[in-house]
Design a protein around this nucleic acid. Structure first.
Lengths: 141, 141
DNA sequence: CTCTGTGCAAAGGATTTGCACTACG
DNA sequence: CGTAGTGCAAATCCTTTGCACAGAG
């Protein structure tokens, strides 16, 4: 089984919720999309593998995954929330302030910082999101 | 003049836009709020110092400031976007996945990373947002 | 004067809620 | 069996748009 699917599924069962077939389909479609997707777009994808799943279930499942800290909604341009996967415990991207292009990158320098802050604020840190903002080469003219 | 107000104001004029009295009032109210505020809440505050300013102008000014990279909308809990100030070139906070409490902290370790990535992706990085996620002491039970 | 910015009202979307029904454990 | 989950439709809330007017340069 795909590691990400397992992490997302486990986050649901570990919090005392049921892993229904609808939720499984949603998780599967979400992982396949690699994130950066809106709830509606995800609902669309889910319908292709499980036509009976309604938009509402997608919204509610995403909310649940957000609570579990394995997914995070962000503003990417305008309008609807885009959901990104936090299953690796971190997510890093560059975002253009003008055209809202997103470029993901890998970097894991914040592990130590997580520990320090966990103690300082009595906060159980489980993941982080690092967004760098600026202008892409096109928008910088 | 307050440094943050100056940075926000300059971001408007430097991009060829006008610094009207409405925009000045919005910027002033935004800085006073210290960010983490919704557009509607900000409009409310603005009305207290400049009653003629409409909600629309607040939305449009915030959008402008986002384009300029000095403000960033984030999902903080549910519903409306919360706007945070990026006037220092960075913003760091902890956010609880359950109750959405936010704790800000200071840290500037990402400067070098900004330079590296700027070159690697031909991206003019001007600011960053680091969000650590997890559970606050209350929600961890 | 000209063109950007503003305000209103209405439109357009996205998200949430209420409720009866289904199905997992 | 009982409770958590689902789906629909409606409601609600947030954001955007169209347009005529005001104000800055």
């Amino acid at each position: 089984m795909d590691t990400q699917i397992k992490i997302l599924s486990d986050s649901i069962t570990q919090n005392g919720h049921r892993l229904t077939t609808s939720r499984q389909a949603i998780i599967e479609a979400l992982v396949e999309s690699h994130g950066h997707i809106t709830a509606d777009e995800l609902a669309e994808r889910v319908r292709q593998i499980a036509p009976q799943v309604g938009r509402m279930t997608v919204y509610r499942t995403l909310e649940l995954l957000c609570e579990n800290g394995v997914v995070r909604p962000i503003y990417q341009g305008t309008g609807a929330a885009h959901y990104i996967l936090m299953t690796d415990g971190s997510h890093h991207h560059l975002m253009c302030n003008r055209c809202h292009t997103v470029i993901e990158f890998d970097n894991c320098f914040a592990d130590e910082l997580e520990k320090t802050l966990s103690k300082q604020f009595e906060f159980k840190v489980t993941s982080h999101l690092l967004e760098l903002h600026g202008l892409c080469s096109d928008c910088a003219e």
